[in-house]
Nucleic acid binder design. Structure first.
Length: 422
DNA sequence: TCTGGGGTCCTAGGACCC
DNA sequence: TCTGGGGTCCTAGGACCC
């Protein structure tokens, strides 16, 4: 078997649902789905899938047809914990591990089989067994010559599959694979390709290189190379420190046309994005926000801030006018979102360029204290008055239950400058 | 005061991923 | 599949410069 480079891909089977079962053993063997807060299925155990439930099935339908199914809200903190353990186990074999997503990773095993006097098949099996026995979850793994091919391999046989695609077998696999299933080929590219007579991944791979260069953008050209056994996607091992953006978005139900409420939703998103910013020790210089209409159209703008910041007050001040310009009282909206980009590690710009640095520094100090309070007593102990309507909203009850909601309000008191504290 | 050729930087928007 | 939330990368085109 020929592996010029040896790229390994791990994919957790029904990951979210499987994590729930692993952390609550009494759920074992039961049909469990996650995604309660969304109203549709995010992940389903195989017992649930056996009933005919698949991703994106409506939960109302699930409840009606299968009352025995256990419906859980997503718990990303737990999933992230399992993901971390998964990466660490793979790292026992090589430091070259890319933490690709919450349920996937890539590893570069090039040369390792020879080094250990074993085969790649045995090596892949060992990693898979290690993962499954240590975590109590099932994984599908794939081994091939690059990332695109390794993804094909891990998807080939789910759940709990182990597939090796050496260079010489790649055409056999691509010939059986619709082009739209290839990692990086989305709907619109697939449609474009169909018009050019490309149906399978092999159809694409066997086209003339010149034709591909002429007709497709760079990312698609890179996929072309990898479908032919080349190597164009490097592994990004280690943790990413140069994150480009942080975003926070939230859908609310029912949709609303209240200016105050929608701004409070935005304000809450800004606050939560800032928490993340501070946790990473970052400051933002560019923001973009949107409000999303019931018809799924997005309205919003991008803004540059006068100086780098990590406190919500600065961002909201910049946002206020743009929001007023964007918001239409006749519109019906279903979500808001904020994205922070132009991230830097220090607010160097503030130095002596602006005369309100004192205020910003004071706010900075205050948020240090607030972050400590949140760390000690739980998230969102202190929130801005501007966000308050969002916390009061009905949608909140669905996730946390009425107790939390009542609790939230008993302990509130107003505080100048900060808005409201509870 | 009529206009060549070439470069950089930024932004909006599209496409894609899990 | 009538649709949640969090990301990345690329490209075209405008602004500006020599």
């Amino acid at each position: 078997m020929n592996f010029p480079r040896t790229i390994f891909h791990v994919d957790g089977d029904s990951f979210f649902a499987a994590c729930e079962v692993a952390s609550r053993p009494w759920l074992k063997g039961k049909p469990v789905v996650t995604g309660r807060e969304r109203g549709i299925v995010s992940a389903a155990t195989y017992e649930a899938k056996a009933l005919g439930i698949s991703r994106a099935t409506r939960l109302l339908e699930v409840k009606k047809k299968f009352p025995q199914v256990i419906i859980l809200p997503s718990d990303y903190d737990t999933y992230a914990l399992y993901a971390q353990r998964m990466y660490d186990i793979v790292r026992r074999y090589t430091p070259l591990v890319e933490e690709y997503s919450i349920d996937e990773c890539f590893a570069d095993l090039t040369g390792l089989a020879e080094e250990r006097g074993t085969t790649y098949e045995a090596l892949a099996k060992a990693i898979k067994d290690d993962l499954e026995t240590s975590l109590g979850l099932s994984f599908s793994v794939g081994l091939s010559v690059n990332k695109v091919a390794a993804k094909i391999a891990s998807k080939w046989n789910k759940p709990s599959g182990l597939t090796l695609i050496p260079l010489e077998l790649l055409p056999e696999y691509t010939a059986k694979l619709p082009i739209g299933k290839v990692w990086g080929i989305g709907r619109s590219t697939a449609i474009q390709m169909k018009k050019k007579g490309i149906v399978t991944a092999f159809d694409f791979a066997s086209r003339d290189r010149h034709f591909v260069r002429e007709n497709f953008p760079k990312p698609i050209q890179e996929i072309y190379e990898e479908l032919n056994g080349g190597f164009s996607h490097d592994l990004h091992a280690g943790v990413r420190e140069d994150q480009a953006s942080i975003q926070r978005t939230r859908t609310f139900r029912p949709p609303s046309s209240s200016r105050e409420f929608i701004f409070s939703e935005l304000s809450r998103n800004v606050e939560e994005a800032c928490v993340k910013l501070r946790r990473h020790g970052l400051f933002t210089t560019h923001i973009s926000f949107f409000i999303k209409s019931q018809e799924f159209s997005y309205h919003g703008t991008d803004l540059s801030l006068p100086h780098a910041t990590n406190v919500p007050q600065d961002i909201l001040a910049a946002l206020k006018r743009a929001f007023e310009d964007t918001f239409s009282p006749r519109g019906l909206y279903r979500a808001t979102g904020i994205r922070l980009s132009g991230l830097t590690t220090a607010n160097t710009l503030t130095a002596h360029l602006f005369n309100d640095t004192t205020r910003t520094d004071t706010l900075g100090e205050m948020y240090k204290a607030i972050d400590k309070v949140d760390h000690k007593y739980g998230k969102n102990m202190v929130v801005l008055g501007a966000s308050l309507m969002s916390w009061k909203s009905r949608g909140e009850m669905e996730g946390n239950g009425p107790d939390v909601k009542n609790n939230l309000f008993r302990k509130r008191f107003g505080m100048p400058f900060l808005g409201e504290v509870r």
